[in-house]
């Protein structure tokens, strides 16, 4: 997990620092409540959070398909938008991974390096930087299945992948365990990919859908009512599958649980 250490911001965090809120395009358009929950949650800790209004997309759909030429404009704009912030926080593992790990075709100027190293996924930021130990305002009286996305686990290292040997850890579960009433249900395949995979979910529709359906069945078999994830893009796919299959599961972002809404 070299990416994790490389990305550690060399500037230690202090309270007065400027935090840039990174809201990925699909959260802006489809899940604004996740953006609101993230912003409110960060504000609860007294942080100075700004939202650059010119943000569009981190370039991931193109970059993930190997199309670096067409990803470049979005990537450069991202750097422009966020270069003046000390820390950049986004509620989306795969988009943060894109910035941290895949902005490597841009010229690595000081700004680019600063933005790459200073961009954090929300769970990492709460767990590793703020070291939050309680969420007294939050309560969630439901059985929850946790879905840490592959980008978050294997790209950012927020939980131990089952393939890697060593002591288990799971930063998302850690944070959720501090929420009153919340019960995490164990599942059979906690870190088997759900099949979203960005453009993969349409270019490889049959395989993607089968992976998503297996995931939903795993969750429902273990009595989950809610599926909670730091990555709404996986949930968008899983939710679409579950709705079509008539499975009664609700999908929300970890920020909504930790902030106590909005739902």
């Amino acid at each position: 997990m070299a990416t994790q250490t490389e990305a550690t911001n060399p500037v230690p965090f202090s309270q007065g620092m400027k935090i840039g809120l990174f809201i990925p395009c699909y959260i802006d358009l489809i899940y604004p409540e996740v953006g609101i929950a993230t912003l409110e949650l960060l504000e609860r800790f007294g942080l100075d959070v700004g939202f650059p209004l010119d943000q569009t997309c981190c370039g991931q759909p193109m970059s993930n398909s190997g199309d670096e030429v067409n990803a470049a404009a979005a990537e450069r704009l991202f750097i422009e938008n966020f270069k003046t912030y000390d820390y950049i926080v986004g509620p989306a593992g795969s988009c943060v991974k894109q910035v941290r790990c895949h902005f490597d075709k841009l010229e690595q100027t000081e700004d680019v390096r600063h933005v790459r190293q200073g961009t954090y996924e929300l769970v990492e930021f709460l767990h590793d930087i703020l070291k939050v130990d309680s969420f007294p305002w939050a309560e969630f009286q439901h059985p929850v299945a946790l879905h840490n996305s592959c980008s978050s686990i294997r790209g950012l290292g927020i939980a131990k992948p089952s393939e890697i040997m060593g002591p288990a850890f799971d930063k998302t579960a850690d944070l959720l365990s501090k929420v009153k009433g919340l019960v995490l249900v164990p599942v059979d395949r906690p870190d088997d990919c759900c099949g979203f995979g960005g453009t993969f979910c349409v270019t490889d529709e049959a395989v993607s859908a089968r992976m998503g359906l297996d995931k939903a069945h795993d969750h429902i078999r273990h009595g989950a009512e809610y599926v909670v994830s730091p990555d709404m893009s996986c949930l968008m796919h899983q939710q679409g599958i579950a709705r079509r299959a008539g499975l009664d599961l609700k999908y929300i972002h970890v920020a909504q649980v930790l902030n106590g809404g909005p739902f």
Binding site: I23, I27, D28, L29, I30, Y31, P32, E33, V34, G35, I36, F51, L53, E205, A206, A209, G212, L213, M236, H237, Q239, G240, I241, R243, R244
Partner: peptide, 15 residues
């Protein structure tokens, strides 16, 4: 195999 997600009435940016 999937239902489409609904666009929100108000984007986060507008909010």
């Amino acid at each position: 195999d999937r239902e489409l997600p609904q666009l929100a009435r108000q984007t986060f940016r507008e909010w």
